[in-house]
Design a protein around this nucleic acid. Sequence first.
DNA 1: TCTATACTTGCATAATGACGCAAATGAACA
DNA 2: TGTTCATTTGCGTCATTATGCAAGTATAGA
Lengths: 96, 96
Amino acid sequence: MSAAFFGALSDPTRLAILVRLAGFARPATVSEISCCYPIDMSVISRHLAALKAAGILESEKRGKQVYYSVRYDTFTEALRSVADAVENCCPDDRCC
Amino acid sequence: MSAAFFGALSDPTRLAILVRLAGFARPATVSEISCCYPIDMSVISRHLAALKAAGILESEKRGKQVYYSVRYDTFTEALRSVADAVENCCPDDRCC
DNA sequence: TCTATACTTGCATAATGACGCAAATGAACA
DNA sequence: TGTTCATTTGCGTCATTATGCAAGTATAGA
């Protein structure tokens, strides 16, 4: 349950990239992704790196291009495990 | 699927507060929560307000004190709906 | 080897956010 | 009404982060 995981999702641009990439349903290159936003490609590249560092995306280099794709299994598993953790949290009345 | 929702969870202190509050399994006052952290109570109060604004907590004022509690249903539902959305995202190959 | 393409990294700047302190609000109670 | 306690809000400061531009790296192809 890491704050870094949620931090990766806390930026509107990164979230939009993730949704778009999920919609692609196939790996996409940085250029393909960045052409959809009025933002410099270097910025998109950094966002993709951040999502990858959080374990949400994975990348594969083929020739000159880098293909990013969603790690559906780990991503959805992470979200559901947080939901489960909060739901099944063992009561603890003590403070400090 | 809002970035603000994840933004509320992207801070380690806020996440710790949420976990603690979930562990309490009952509403807790700002003082009760803040006594667990070496942080000024005003900061905790702001964190609680942020979590509430994100729909993760709710508050009730009783006398001089404000009781915060987790909105388990909406919180876990939000996480699971994001997981579902990414998982069942309709493919869309077009760019821009 | 030279050039073009795809992407990443360095650096500066601007915006955002966390924090502490002090003051303000609001409720209970003498 | 005045005091005290619980919480919130205003404000200044420091750290982090998003962004753009320019330069760097790496790969493909002429």
